[in-house]
Design a protein around this nucleic acid. Sequence first.
DNA 1: GCCGTTTTCGGCCCGACTGTTTTCAGTCG
Length: 573
Amino acid sequence: MSVTNSEIAVMFEELADLLEIEGANPFRVRAYRNAARAIADNPKRMTDLLAEGQDLARLPGIGKAIAAKIEAIASTGTLRQLADVKRRIPEAMGRLMHVRGLGPKRVKTLCAALQVRSVEDLQRALRSGRIRELEGFGEKTEKLIAQGLQQVAADERRTSWSVARQIAEPLVDYLRAVEGVRHVTVAGSYRRHRDTVGDLDILVASGKGSQVVQRFVAYEDVVRVVAQGRTRSSVILRSGLQVDLRAVPESSYGAALLYFTGSKAHNIAVRKIAVRRRLKINEYGVFRGDKRVAGKTETEVYAAIGLPFIEPELRENRGEIEAAEANALPDPIQLRHIKGDLHCHTTASDGMQTLGDLAKAAQARGYEYVAVTDHSKRLTVAHGLNVRRLRRQIAAIDRLNEKLDGMVVLKGAEVDILEDGTLDLPNDVLAALDLTVCAIHHRFELSRHKQTERVLRAMDLPCFNVLAHPTGRLLGERAPYEIDLERIMQAARERGCFLEVNAQPQRLDLSDTLCMLAKEIGVKVAVSTDAHRATDLDFMELGIHQARRGWLERTDVINTRSLGSLRRLLGRH
DNA sequence: GCCGTTTTCGGCCCGACTGTTTTCAGTCG
């Protein structure tokens, strides 16, 4: 079994943690962290790139030394340098770095003075009350570490974007009502529309920062104030979510928005360009010497370093800076481009809405079409349709369409891809449909090779249209199954098939980087909600966020097409 | 350890907040 990118990335992260505790050159440590991120972000497997004879040192953030280390990991499954440092520094100390309030220096001190080498040791040391007696530590620091330890589990749990929105919106309304507040924006990964957020970063434009901070910490959902200064504060809400607030004067709002939106990697890349131009960018503006030359809007800040505005979803330092410099940024898809939903369930299988409800809900959103795609018979828990029931549904949809004005209900099915690569319903009935949405719902544990062959075989069938939720991941619950999506995407392009961006908040599968891969390979996608009730149609917005993060444009997404054009694409002939 | 519009050496983003300090180190984002 070959090593995955995330496994390689974890090894470099661990190496960085341990070396940092050891006091290694901080730039070397950063290089390992940058490499870990570059590897984790890359949708293509390092092992596959190596097998193709590609030079990994050509990837940004990876040079000759790290490329050689990746090769070693690929061939041996281990990294010698990591094993070496683990002999010098107990492995568990790396995890201590993830306790809020502990960095490399404090971890090192705790180890030297109190023999703290693990989370359990740390708990013991806290109980003994000896931490406060260490030089450079004190009672407050001890308390900070104790709280950090309690939060460790919560910190590892990220919040889905849609849940974060439910928490963020009332807080934003509350802050907008504070006297003197001009603008409030939830920045950070929330504004970049990542599928999950670790915390909320709220930026406020106000001439009276400390007043805003005082009102902020008094918000009814705040259970703990982590930090409180004149312009900046951090709190923990009842939900466990941390919220960081920053207040700046209106004249700095653009620069602060850029800074607080991130990503960190994007900011660093932007500031490096500024340095090359003998400028300095901070959250207050763009400076040439002491003279401020920009800062009120983000557009102004980007312009100061010769770049066009970059959409927040693109700010991950995944090539957007280079694209901006070359004036080749994508024009990301928007919600208003969507003309219909291609994956929806009704009460015929496991949905909560009738056929009529679904049609009405789709029409209310101004759609030209909506596809009914109930489950096939293997999925008995979802009351999947057999041939007889599917034929009955087809007839019912025909009758409904005769009555509908201005919208068409498409006949479809979400068909199980069986283990042998056949589909769960026979060809003749599938041929009577407008489209099929095919998916894996069992045997997730097959080897990468077998899983890939399974889908490729299914895709050879003429009635296969869209591969639904292509990795099967459930955020925070279930990892993606092993599958070679690069091969699948190539095969899909050759056969006229498509991949889905499933807009369910816990799926959002394809992921952002896999959307980028789809675009690179040239296979188009469907952004679909997998709706089980009428309100689920609103998940479309989340799918659009993900598609935008994956650089997808209107023409990359098939359900931006008018009905006639869509039908031609689904024909496969 | 990476990288190159001061290019193979010598840099590497930048500032706020806190605690324990009398001027700053550590951590965080």
